[in-house]
Protein backbone atom coordinates (compact mmCIF):
# COMPACT_ATOMS: atom_id res chain seq x y z
CA UNK A 1 0.00 0.00 0.00
CA UNK A 2 1.40 3.42 -0.85
CA UNK A 3 2.17 5.37 2.30
CA UNK A 4 0.91 8.54 0.64
CA UNK A 5 -2.69 7.83 1.64
CA UNK A 6 -1.61 8.30 5.25
CA UNK A 7 -1.04 11.95 4.61
CA UNK A 8 -3.97 12.91 2.40
CA UNK A 9 -6.41 15.26 3.97
CA UNK A 10 -9.70 13.85 2.81
CA UNK A 11 -9.55 10.17 3.56
CA UNK A 12 -12.82 8.33 3.05
CA UNK A 13 -13.55 4.71 3.78
CA UNK A 14 -16.03 3.47 1.22
CA UNK A 15 -17.88 0.21 1.68
CA UNK A 16 -19.87 -0.63 -1.42
CA UNK A 17 -22.60 -3.27 -1.82
CA UNK A 18 -21.01 -5.78 0.50
CA UNK A 19 -22.45 -9.27 0.55
CA UNK A 20 -21.29 -11.98 2.89
CA UNK A 21 -22.74 -15.45 2.67
CA UNK A 22 -21.91 -18.18 5.19
CA UNK A 23 -22.94 -21.56 3.80
CA UNK A 24 -26.11 -20.18 2.29
CA UNK A 25 -26.85 -17.80 5.16
CA UNK A 26 -26.77 -14.20 4.03
CA UNK A 27 -25.02 -12.43 6.88
CA UNK A 28 -24.68 -9.15 4.98
CA UNK A 29 -26.83 -8.06 2.05
CA UNK A 30 -25.84 -5.11 -0.12
CA UNK A 31 -24.48 -3.08 2.76
CA UNK A 32 -22.90 0.23 1.79
CA UNK A 33 -21.49 2.92 4.00
CA UNK A 34 -19.05 5.78 3.97
CA UNK A 35 -16.87 7.02 6.78
CA UNK A 36 -15.03 10.30 6.63
CA UNK A 37 -12.09 11.58 8.59
CA UNK A 38 -13.12 13.38 11.75
CA UNK A 39 -16.49 11.70 11.86
CA UNK A 40 -18.02 9.21 14.30
CA UNK A 41 -20.39 6.70 12.78
CA UNK A 42 -22.46 4.45 15.00
CA UNK A 43 -23.27 0.98 13.71
CA UNK A 44 -26.25 -0.40 15.57
CA UNK A 45 -28.77 -3.18 15.25
CA UNK A 46 -30.16 -6.13 17.20
CA UNK A 47 -27.98 -9.12 18.06
CA UNK A 48 -27.04 -11.14 15.02
CA UNK A 49 -27.73 -8.30 12.61
CA UNK A 50 -24.24 -8.52 11.09
CA UNK A 51 -22.40 -5.67 12.82
CA UNK A 52 -19.35 -7.64 13.86
CA UNK A 53 -19.39 -9.53 10.57
CA UNK A 54 -19.18 -6.20 8.77
CA UNK A 55 -16.14 -5.16 10.83
CA UNK A 56 -14.51 -8.55 10.21
CA UNK A 57 -15.11 -8.18 6.48
CA UNK A 58 -13.74 -4.62 6.38
CA UNK A 59 -10.59 -5.65 8.26
CA UNK A 60 -10.10 -8.67 6.01
CA UNK A 61 -10.49 -11.35 8.67
CA UNK A 62 -13.45 -12.68 6.69
CA UNK A 63 -13.29 -12.71 2.90
CA UNK A 64 -16.24 -10.92 1.34
CA UNK A 65 -18.57 -12.73 -1.04
CA UNK A 66 -19.07 -9.69 -3.25
CA UNK A 67 -18.75 -5.93 -3.06
CA UNK A 68 -15.92 -3.43 -2.80
CA UNK A 69 -13.99 -1.72 -0.04
CA UNK A 70 -11.89 1.38 -0.70
CA UNK A 71 -9.88 3.97 1.12
CA UNK A 72 -10.13 6.85 -1.32
CA UNK A 73 -9.21 5.12 -4.58
CA UNK A 74 -7.19 2.27 -3.04
CA UNK A 75 -9.07 -0.97 -3.51
CA UNK A 76 -8.85 -3.16 -0.40
CA UNK A 77 -11.52 -5.67 -1.38
CA UNK A 78 -9.20 -8.65 -1.58
CA UNK A 79 -6.34 -7.39 0.58
CA UNK A 80 -5.00 -9.42 3.49
CA UNK A 81 -5.68 -8.26 7.07
CA UNK A 82 -2.13 -6.97 7.57
CA UNK A 83 -2.28 -5.01 4.30
CA UNK A 84 -5.58 -3.46 5.31
CA UNK A 85 -4.11 -2.55 8.68
CA UNK A 86 -1.11 -0.90 7.01
CA UNK A 87 -3.46 0.98 4.67
CA UNK A 88 -4.84 2.69 7.77
CA UNK A 89 -7.67 0.69 9.32
CA UNK A 90 -7.33 -0.18 13.00
CA UNK A 91 -9.81 -2.09 15.11
CA UNK A 92 -10.61 -3.44 18.53
CA UNK A 93 -12.46 -6.63 19.35
CA UNK A 94 -15.66 -7.45 21.16
CA UNK A 95 -13.72 -10.00 23.21
CA UNK A 96 -10.50 -8.17 23.96
CA UNK A 97 -7.48 -9.49 22.11
CA UNK A 98 -4.29 -8.20 23.70
CA UNK A 99 -0.89 -9.84 23.40
CA UNK A 100 -1.03 -11.46 26.82
CA UNK A 101 2.63 -12.27 27.30
CA UNK A 102 3.82 -8.83 26.24
CA UNK A 103 3.94 -5.87 28.58
CA UNK A 104 1.50 -3.01 28.18
CA UNK A 105 4.25 -0.96 26.61
CA UNK A 106 5.25 -3.70 24.20
CA UNK A 107 1.63 -4.14 23.19
CA UNK A 108 1.56 -0.51 22.11
CA UNK A 109 5.09 -0.48 20.68
CA UNK A 110 4.49 -3.45 18.44
CA UNK A 111 1.62 -1.66 16.76
CA UNK A 112 3.87 1.31 15.98
CA UNK A 113 6.63 -1.00 14.78
CA UNK A 114 4.36 -2.98 12.49
CA UNK A 115 3.37 0.06 10.45
CA UNK A 116 7.03 0.85 9.83
CA UNK A 117 8.36 2.86 12.77
CA UNK A 118 11.85 1.98 13.94
CA UNK A 119 12.23 0.40 17.34
CA UNK A 120 13.39 3.72 18.78
CA UNK A 121 10.62 5.83 17.24
CA UNK A 122 8.12 3.24 18.38
CA UNK A 123 9.33 3.64 21.96
CA UNK A 124 8.73 7.38 21.85
CA UNK A 125 5.35 7.01 20.19
CA UNK A 126 4.33 4.43 22.77
CA UNK A 127 5.41 6.72 25.60
CA UNK A 128 3.27 9.52 24.22
CA UNK A 129 0.20 7.32 23.91
CA UNK A 130 0.79 5.79 27.33
CA UNK A 131 0.70 9.27 28.86
CA UNK A 132 -2.34 10.26 26.90
CA UNK A 133 -4.22 7.21 28.14
CA UNK A 134 -2.97 7.47 31.71
CA UNK A 135 -1.30 4.07 31.61
CA UNK A 136 2.06 5.11 33.12
CA UNK A 137 1.63 2.98 36.19
CA UNK A 138 1.05 -0.14 34.13
CA UNK A 139 3.72 0.00 31.43
CA UNK A 140 5.80 -2.90 32.72
CA UNK A 141 2.87 -5.15 33.58
CA UNK A 142 2.07 -8.08 31.35
CA UNK A 143 -1.22 -7.53 29.54
CA UNK A 144 -2.58 -10.67 31.17
CA UNK A 145 -2.22 -9.02 34.59
CA UNK A 146 -4.47 -6.06 33.80
CA UNK A 147 -7.93 -5.45 35.20
CA UNK A 148 -10.68 -5.66 32.59
CA UNK A 149 -11.42 -1.97 32.23
CA UNK A 150 -7.76 -1.23 31.55
CA UNK A 151 -7.55 -3.99 28.96
CA UNK A 152 -10.11 -2.06 26.92
CA UNK A 153 -8.08 1.09 27.23
CA UNK A 154 -4.84 -0.62 26.22
CA UNK A 155 -6.55 -2.16 23.22
CA UNK A 156 -7.69 1.25 22.02
CA UNK A 157 -4.24 2.71 22.74
CA UNK A 158 -2.68 -0.08 20.72
CA UNK A 159 -5.00 0.60 17.78
CA UNK A 160 -4.11 4.30 17.87
CA UNK A 161 -0.38 3.55 17.90
CA UNK A 162 -0.88 2.44 14.30
CA UNK A 163 -1.76 6.04 13.44
CA UNK A 164 -4.81 4.81 11.58
CA UNK A 165 -7.05 6.79 9.27
CA UNK A 166 -10.03 4.85 10.54
CA UNK A 167 -10.70 3.19 13.85
CA UNK A 168 -13.36 0.50 14.14
CA UNK A 169 -14.49 -0.24 17.69
CA UNK A 170 -16.49 -3.40 18.34
CA UNK A 171 -18.55 -2.85 21.50
CA UNK A 172 -15.92 -0.87 23.42
CA UNK A 173 -18.19 -0.46 26.45
CA UNK A 174 -19.16 -4.12 26.78
CA UNK A 175 -18.54 -5.37 30.30
CA UNK A 176 -17.61 -1.97 31.72
CA UNK A 177 -19.36 -0.54 34.75
CA UNK A 178 -21.05 2.84 34.54
CA UNK A 179 -18.05 4.75 35.81
CA UNK A 180 -15.65 3.03 33.43
CA UNK A 181 -18.06 3.54 30.52
CA UNK A 182 -18.21 7.23 31.31
CA UNK A 183 -14.41 7.43 31.39
CA UNK A 184 -14.25 5.62 28.06
CA UNK A 185 -16.74 8.03 26.58
CA UNK A 186 -14.49 10.95 27.45
CA UNK A 187 -11.53 9.23 25.81
CA UNK A 188 -13.50 8.37 22.69
CA UNK A 189 -15.01 11.83 22.30
CA UNK A 190 -11.60 13.37 21.86
CA UNK A 191 -10.10 10.85 19.47
CA UNK A 192 -11.50 11.89 16.07
CA UNK A 193 -10.36 15.49 16.35
CA UNK A 194 -7.07 14.81 18.11
CA UNK A 195 -6.04 11.97 15.87
CA UNK A 196 -7.73 13.22 12.71
CA UNK A 197 -9.40 9.94 11.99
CA UNK A 198 -12.81 8.52 11.25
CA UNK A 199 -14.34 6.25 13.85
CA UNK A 200 -16.94 3.52 13.54
CA UNK A 201 -18.50 2.24 16.75
CA UNK A 202 -20.59 -0.85 17.24
CA UNK A 203 -22.35 -0.52 20.57
CA UNK A 204 -25.45 -1.57 22.47
CA UNK A 205 -25.13 1.22 25.00
CA UNK A 206 -27.62 3.67 23.46
CA UNK A 207 -26.62 6.46 25.80
CA UNK A 208 -23.05 6.26 24.56
CA UNK A 209 -24.11 6.00 20.92
CA UNK A 210 -26.46 8.98 21.08
CA UNK A 211 -23.87 11.16 22.76
CA UNK A 212 -20.94 10.25 20.57
CA UNK A 213 -22.16 9.65 17.07
CA UNK A 214 -22.59 12.14 14.27
CA UNK A 215 -24.41 9.61 12.15
CA UNK A 216 -25.95 6.18 12.66
CA UNK A 217 -26.20 3.18 10.41
CA UNK A 218 -28.76 0.56 11.40
CA UNK A 219 -28.55 -3.09 10.38
CA UNK A 220 -31.11 -5.85 10.77
CA UNK A 221 -30.71 -9.38 9.41
CA UNK A 222 -27.69 -8.18 7.43
CA UNK A 223 -29.60 -5.40 5.66
CA UNK A 224 -29.42 -1.66 6.08
CA UNK A 225 -32.74 -0.47 7.48
CA UNK A 226 -31.81 3.11 8.25
CA UNK A 227 -29.14 5.79 8.03
CA UNK A 228 -28.80 9.36 9.17
CA UNK A 229 -28.29 11.53 12.20
CA UNK A 230 -29.45 10.08 15.52
CA UNK A 231 -32.54 12.31 15.30
CA UNK A 232 -33.44 11.14 11.81
CA UNK A 233 -32.84 7.49 12.61
CA UNK A 234 -35.11 7.60 15.61
CA UNK A 235 -37.98 8.52 13.35
CA UNK A 236 -37.52 5.76 10.75
CA UNK A 237 -40.40 3.29 11.28
CA UNK A 238 -38.39 0.20 10.29
CA UNK A 239 -35.77 1.08 12.88
CA UNK A 240 -38.34 1.69 15.56
CA UNK A 241 -39.98 -1.62 14.80
CA UNK A 242 -36.84 -3.74 14.45
CA UNK A 243 -34.67 -2.18 17.07
CA UNK A 244 -36.35 0.08 19.52
CA UNK A 245 -39.63 -1.83 19.11
CA UNK A 246 -38.12 -5.07 20.15
CA UNK A 247 -36.75 -3.60 23.34
CA UNK A 248 -40.14 -2.01 24.02
CA UNK A 249 -41.73 -5.42 23.71
CA UNK A 250 -38.98 -6.87 25.85
CA UNK A 251 -39.89 -4.39 28.59
Amino acid sequence: MPPSIQTTNTATLIVQDINKVFFGLRALENVSLRLQKGEILGLIGPNGSGKTTLINVITGLLPLTSGKIYINSTNLSSAKPYQIARAGIARTYQTIRLFKELTVKENIEVAAVSIGSSRKEARHQADAIIQEFGLEAWVHYLASALPYGLERRVEIARALAMKPLFLLLDEPAAGLNEEEAEELLHILELIPDNKKLGMLIVEHDMHLIMRLCDRLHVLNYGKTIGEGTPEQVRRIPAVVEAYLGSTARGD
Binding site: T59, G60, L61, K80, P81, Y82, I84, A85, R86, A90, R91, Y93, R97, L98, F99, V110, A111, S114, I115, R158, A159, M162
Partner: peptide, 9 residues
Protein backbone atom coordinates in the same frame (compact mmCIF):
# COMPACT_ATOMS: atom_id res chain seq x y z
CA UNK B 1 -5.62 -12.37 14.49
CA UNK B 2 -4.90 -9.30 16.55
CA UNK B 3 -1.38 -9.35 15.12
CA UNK B 4 -2.70 -9.41 11.57
CA UNK B 5 -5.06 -6.51 12.20
CA UNK B 6 -2.28 -4.31 13.52
CA UNK B 7 -0.32 -4.92 10.33
CA UNK B 8 1.94 -7.88 11.11
CA UNK B 9 2.64 -10.33 8.30
Amino acid sequence: YAAATIGIN
